[in-house]
């Protein structure tokens, strides 16, 4: 188990800012400071274009900050300590489900027999065994996102990064996937940074919710989610759930309107 607190935080984001330079300079993120503990499930919540995904991409080392620095305390000894699940799945259409799930393991240099064993374990866990030889376009969106999650978790990352993973799914699938993720995470509590638009999703899944402002994004508030672990989806009916949801929405509402007013698209 990872969960038991060690002295140093897993992730330290110190004064990180990000500008994008194209036709004009866009300040995506103003100074952000955030510390994430080992084994913590943190949800980043905010209006479109507030830089939530930018933070995630910097943690995955896909982007570099314009200012400040990020420290990730790793156990060492692997290619990359993070694994990412993307909103539009980003599973490779030219690889079978099995090959997709094995991809991360191959990149990490896991020997073939072990990679196959882990691939099949995760296919089974995610209910994908029957589709191992299928190609992704033959599967529904929910199934494709399962593949993407399996691909990430099969590498047993120290940090799991999820960029609005359920946003493209229909409401019922989304609910099922949220519940599955809750279950999976409670089994082995690794550090998760989860970007979402949904307040409900953030409360259901997160230990802590970080609310961000409209662009240029900064942290407006943090909420500790009071529900104990292991959590069940039934907490949705708890009056405290609705209360917290309302409280966060009151804070976000103005920011969302501000983002739309500026034509705040991605």
């Amino acid at each position: 188990m990872h969960g038991t607190a060690s002295s140093a935080p897993k992730i330290e984001i110190r004064g990180v800012a990000k500008q994008y330079h194209s036709a004009r300079t866009v300040q995506a993120l103003s100074k952000v400071d955030l510390t994430i503990a080992d084994g913590e499930f943190v949800c980043l919540l905010g209006p479109s274009g507030c830089g939530k995904s930018t933070i995630l991409r910097m943690l995955a080392r896909l982007h570099k900050p314009s200012d400040g620095e990020i420290i990730i305390n790793t156990a060492g000894g692997r290619v990359t300590p993070t694994a990412m699940v993307f909103q539009d799945y980003a599973v490779f259409p030219w690889k079978t489900i099995e090959q997709n799930v094995r991809f991360g393991l191959e990149m990490a240099g896991v020997p073939m027999p072990e990679a196959n064993e882990r691939t099949h374990r995760w296919l089974k866990k995610m209910g994908l065994s029957d589709f191992a030889k299928n190609y992704p376009p033959t599967l529904s969106g929910g199934m494709q996102q399962r593949v993407s999650i399996a691909r990430a978790l099969a590498t047993e990352p120290e940090i799991l990064l999820m960029d609005e993973p359920f946003a493209a799914l229909d409401a019922q699938h989304r609910r099922i996937m949220q519940e599955e993720l809750l279950q999976l995470w409670q089994e082995d509590r690794r550090t998760v940074v989860f970007v979402t638009h949904s307040i409900e999703e953030a409360i259901l899944l997160g230990d802590r919710i970080v609310v961000m402002s409209a662009r240029p994004g900064r942290i407006m508030a943090e909420f500790n989610v009071p529900f104990a672990r292991p959590r069940s989806p039934e907490i949705r009916t708890d009056p405290h759930f609705a209360q917290l949801e309302q409280e966060i929405w009151n804070m976000l509402r103005d920011e969302v309107e501000r983002a739309y007013g500026e034509g705040g698209h991605k």
Partner: peptide
Amino acid sequence: SQTETSPTALRIEPGMAERDPS
């Protein structure tokens, strides 16, 4: 044992392209 950062810590910092983009 950890002080500020572990020896295997990963540091993500601005590169040349970010420090002076123009």
